[in-house]
Nucleic acid binder design. Structure first.
Length: 417
RNA sequence: CGGAGUGUGGUGUAACGGCUAACAUUCUCGCUUUGGGAGCGAGCGACUCAGGGUUCGAAUCCCUGCACUCCGACCA
């Protein structure tokens, strides 16, 4: 991609209507733009990052047997009335709208009910189970107060997977697999070291649910973390008997502020019973399907990475989610430099390496400043100076190391990042 | 939803109730410059969030609304 043609550019100054670090940096870098409080536009750079995150999640969900689908965003009140979740007194963050004929509709904030309804048509027998489906879809939540940039928005992208099993044992087995898959997602997007499995309050059918909490001062949750055992307890269930049960000692725990990036639940038969989702077992009896739900905020993960990898000058994107792999920068407008830079750009592109090529006629300071803001992990500078050494300057942003790399080694090296 | 604060060119700021709303940046054109947001010159760009009120006169004071930010409450 030629930077001269990249839609939207960086900003010199922080937006005045944002305090959150993620929003400031993402807006300055040209990743997102604000539309309303809690509603953000994804610009090309931001969309690239979000797509990378989504793809990683997709791969991990597929690995544990998930199949992707896409449910409707517009919601029929009937299924929600069946479970008791249509009322504004019960769920206060509904966005509701109407058809021309005054029929009420909702905008989906989660999807247990419509999916359970859908499954009635697809699950008749124990032979039809288990089923694991997920979607990566825009959710709407009418938050009374949006805050913290993209960490808590009114419209956001979320991955939600739902499991359907014959019994509790089947659910338990899959639930453990989901934990592992989530772990891999956070490792791959680069926040594994700061993200911990956390015990949180359960629903009607299990004692606990599990959250994945990323330690970060921008978070809204308080957790008590044991770094040795790599588990944490959410403040909401932090009680002596819980500590005892989990074999944790108060002394080994540190109190931390964290961002909830994922949450998995054992639902049991709650929604299956409400919607009448049953199957016939081997004994010929009709019984309820056992469900689980597994949420992961894609937009929130995007913001969390920005919070954790952000600095005063920009965001140092982890390799796997960076908008591009390499930022190639030519300095000056010397024809030899321009020609060589173009050649390298074309060679890298031909190898399917994602390169952002700063081909603009601009000062070095501006180019470096922009490169810091955009934060692509590998910055290659080509100038009269580097060409005098028959090389390019290769800066590894994540490691913080700069070195000269010979021109004829650049391609080989880039392929092996 | 309770409380506090803020709304001025694209962006960031300034302006005692009183001149044609100022400065920086961005942007456009020309020249110069080219390793950390460089220089000179010339331009474009705002009826100061909306509506009402006070006043000879309102960006400025008052009221209402809206928007945004923060604190709290809320948060499968």
């Amino acid at each position: 991609m030629l930077q001269s043609q990249l839609f939207t550019k960086t900003r010199r100054e922080d937006p005045k209507d944002e305090v959150a670090k993620n929003a400031k940096l993402l807006i300055r870098g040209g990743f997102i733009a604000k539309s309303l409080a809690g509603v953000y536009v994804l610009l090309p750079l931001g969309l690239r990052v979000l797509d990378k995150i989504s793809q990683i999640i997709r791969e991990e969900m597929n690995k544990i047997g998930g199949q992707e689908l896409r449910l409707a965003t517009l919601q029929d009140p009937a299924v929600w009335q069946a479970s008791g979740r249509w009322s504004d007194e019960v769920v206060d963050n509904w966005f509701k709208t109407k058809l021309k004929n005054d029929t009420e509709l909702g905008l989906g904030f989660t999807h247990e009910e419509p999916l359970a309804k859908l499954m009635i048509d697809h699950i008749q027998s124990y032979r039809d189970l288990p089923v694991y489906v997920y979607q990566i879809q825009t959710k709407f939540r009418n938050e009374v107060r949006a805050k913290s940039g993209i960490l808590r928005g009114r419209e956001f992208l979320m991955k939600d997977l739902y499991s359907f099993n014959v019994d509790q044992a089947g659910l338990d087995t899959f639930y453990e697999k989901a934990k592992v898959a989530y772990r891999r997602v956070f490792d791959r997007v680069g926040i594994g070291a700061q993200t911990f499995l956390t015990f949180a309050s359960g629903g009607t059918f299990s004692k606990y649910s599990h959250e994945f909490q990323a330690i970060c001062s921008a978070g809204e949750d308080i957790i008590y973390l044991s770094r040795d055992k790599e588990i944490a307890i959410n403040d909401e269930v932090y009680r002596p008997e819980v500590l005892a049960e989990l074999g944790l000692d108060e002394k080994e725990l540190s109190k931390e502020t964290a961002i909830e990036v994922g949450n998995i639940f054992k639902l049991g038969t709650k929604y299956a019973e409400a919607l009448g989702l049953t199957y016939v077992n081997e004994a010929g009896e009709r019984v309820s399907v056992v469900m689980g739900s597994y949420g992961l905020g894609v937009t929130r993960l995007f913001g969390t990475i920005a919070e954790l990898c952000g600095t005063d000058t920009g965001i140092n994107w982890p390799d796997n989610v960076a908008p591009f792999a390499i930022h190639l920068i030519m300095l000056g407008n010397d024809e030899v430099v321009t020609t060589k830079a173009k050649t390298i750009y074309e060679e890298l592109s031909a190898k399917n390496i994602e390169v952002l090529f700063d081909d603009r006629v601009a000062g070095a300071g501006e180019k470096f400043g922009d490169a810091d803001l955009i934060g692509i992990p590998h910055r290659l500078v080509i100038s009269v100076k580097t060409l005098a050494n028959n090389s390019v300057e290769w800066f590894n942003r994540g490691v913080g190391k700069t070195e000269l790399v010979a021109l004829d080694e650049v391609l080989n090296r880039a392929v092996n990042i």
